[in-house]
Design a protein around this nucleic acid. Structure first.
Length: 154
DNA sequence: GCCAACGTTGGC
DNA sequence: GCCAACGTTGGC
């Protein structure tokens, strides 16, 4: 099975690439969007690579790379009454929300800003750049992934 | 802080 | 099943 590539968004005030570097590994909890969940639950496999994107900050952009180290399992915050991610419909037998675990791979020497991504023809089809796109977990092609790495090292 | 775009909820 | 109202996301 060839490696797949993904992009995951996080607000750095909540969890940044520096936080992941410190922790080395984390559960990607709190995703409450079905499309994003389905990618994590059904498609993300150990070894897949992830572009770590910082949203709602200045500048917004890709901050580094992570790797999937644990495939889909239930997000335990859905069972926690005190969590803001509590899900009343979920039971232990029938969880609603799933997540993957990711590990730190690399923090880029610089953020690759969204505006710069928009200027690169090779990235024109990226989901991230689509008008109105706000999926927090999304697939990227191998070519797009490589193109972003190249920008990061420029 | 604003607001466009989107997803979800709930009345009918 | 439709769709208006509402809440959230996220760039600027």
């Amino acid at each position: 099975m060839p490696k797949k590539h993904w992009l995951m968004k996080s607000e750095p005030s909540t969890y940044s690439i520096a936080d992941l570097k410190r922790d080395q590994q984390t559960e990607w909890d709190g995703v409450r969007n079905y499309q994003a969940r389905n990618f994590m639950r059904d498609d993300m496999k150990v070894g897949d690579l992830v572009l770590f994107y910082h949203s709602v900050t200045d500048p917004v952009g890709v901050a580094g790379v992570a790797e999937v180290v644990q495939a889909s399992h239930p997000d335990v915050t859905q069972f926690d009454h005190k969590s803001k991610y509590f899900e009343p419909r979920a039971t232990q037998e029938k969880p609603v929300w799933y997540l993957v675990d990711i590990a730190f791979v690399e923090q880029f020497p610089r953020i690759v800003p969204l505006a710069e991504l928009r200027s690169v023809p090779a990235l024109a089809q990226m989901e991230l750049l689509r008008k109105g796109s706000r999926l927090s977990v999304q697939p990227v092609t191998a070519a797009e992934f490589q193109a972003v790495l190249k920008l990061a090292r420029r």
